[in-house]
C-alpha cells in the first residue's frame, strides 16, 4: 500500500469511529472552556489582570485539554485487538501512528483552536492578538499531539495511565507552552510575534521528525509486553 493510501485509510477509519462517539471530541472542548471560565472566578474579574494572564491561562488550559484527550489515542484500539492487527499488517507503524495522531489533533486541537477567539474575549485579550493566538494554537496543539502520542504509547494498557501520561508528557511540553504564550503576549503588547511562531514551527518539525517513529517503538513495546 502506498504512503498516502495507507494514511488516508487510517484517517478515514478513525474519523468514522469518532463520528459515532461524540464524547471523544466534545469532552476535551468542554473541559477547555470550563477551565478557562474558572480563572476569572479564581483571580477576580478585573479586565486589567485578566488580559495579562490570558495568554498563559488559555495555553495551559489547551495543554491540559490535549493531555486529557490523549488517553483515548490508542486505548480502544489496544483493548479490542485492532492495534495488534495493525502491527501485524506489515505496513509502516510510524505512518499508521501519524495518521492516528492527525485524527487526534483534528478532534481535540482543532476544536480548541476554533473556540479560542471566544475565550480570548472572555479574558479581555486585545482583539489584535487573536490571529496570533489561533496561529500559535494551530502549530502548538499539533506539536502537543505528536509529543503526547509518545507518552500514550509508553503507558499503553497500564492502570492509571492518565496520571502517569501527564507526568511523562508535561515536562516535555514546556517549550511549546513557553513559546505559545510568549507569542500571544507579544502580539497583545503590539510587538511582532514572528520569531516565537518561527521557533514553534521549528519545534513542530522536530516533533514531526522524531514523534511518529518513537511512538511506533513505544507501541510495539506496549503491545508485545501485554501478550
Amino acid at each position: 500500500m502506498g504512503i498516502f493510501a495507507l494514511l488516508s485509510c487510517i484517517i478515514r477509519r478513525d474519523l468514522a469511529i469518532a463520528m459515532r462517539n461524540t464524547g471523544q471530541w466534545v469532552n476535551p472542548l468542554l473541559f477547555f472552556i470550563v477551565v478557562v471560565a474558572l480563572f476569572p472566578l479564581g483571580v477576580g474579574p478585573s479586565p486589567a489582570t485578566l488580559s495579562i494572564i490570558a495568554p498563559g491561562v488559555i495555553w495551559v488550559s489547551a495543554l491540559l485539554a490535549v493531555l486529557l484527550s490523549l488517553g483515548s489515542l490508542f486505548e480502544t484500539d489496544f483493548a479490542d485487538g485492532t492495534l495488534e492487527q495493525l502491527l501485524l499488517s506489515g505496513q509502516s507503524l510510524a505512518l499508521i501512528v501519524l495518521g492516528k495522531v492527525l485524527v487526534h489533533w483534528f478532534l481535540s486541537g482543532l476544536p480548541l483552536l476554533l473556540i479560542s477567539p471566544l475565550l480570548a474575549l472572555l479574558l479581555a485579550l486585545p482583539t489584535d492578538a487573536i490571529p496570533v493566538l489561533m496561529l500559535s494554537l494551530l502549530i502548538g496543539t499539533l506539536t502537543l499531539s505528536l509529543i503526547g502520542a509518545i507518552g500514550a504509547g509508553l503507558t499503553l494498557g497500564l492502570n492509571q495511565a492518565g496520571v502517569l501520561l501527564s507526568l511523562l508528557v508535561l515536562p516535555l511540553s514546556v517549550p511549546v507552552l513557553i513559546f505559545g504564550s510568549a507569542a500571544v503576549t507579544a502580539a497583545a503588547a503590539d510587538f511582532g510575534a514572528g520569531s516565537q511562531l518561527a521557533i514553534m514551527t521549528g519545534l513542530l518539525l522536530f516533533a514531526l521528525s522524531i514523534g511518529p517513529l518513537t511512538t511506533a517503538a513505544a507501541v510495539r513495546i506496549g503491545v508485545s509486553g501485554s501478550t
Binding site: I150, L154, L168, A217, I221, G222, G225
Partner: peptide, 10 residues
C-alpha cells in the same frame, strides 16, 4: 522486559 524497554525509550 517491557518496563526496561519503555523506560529506555523515555
Amino acid at each position: 522486559q517491557s518496563a526496561a524497554k519503555a523506560a529506555a525509550v523515555l
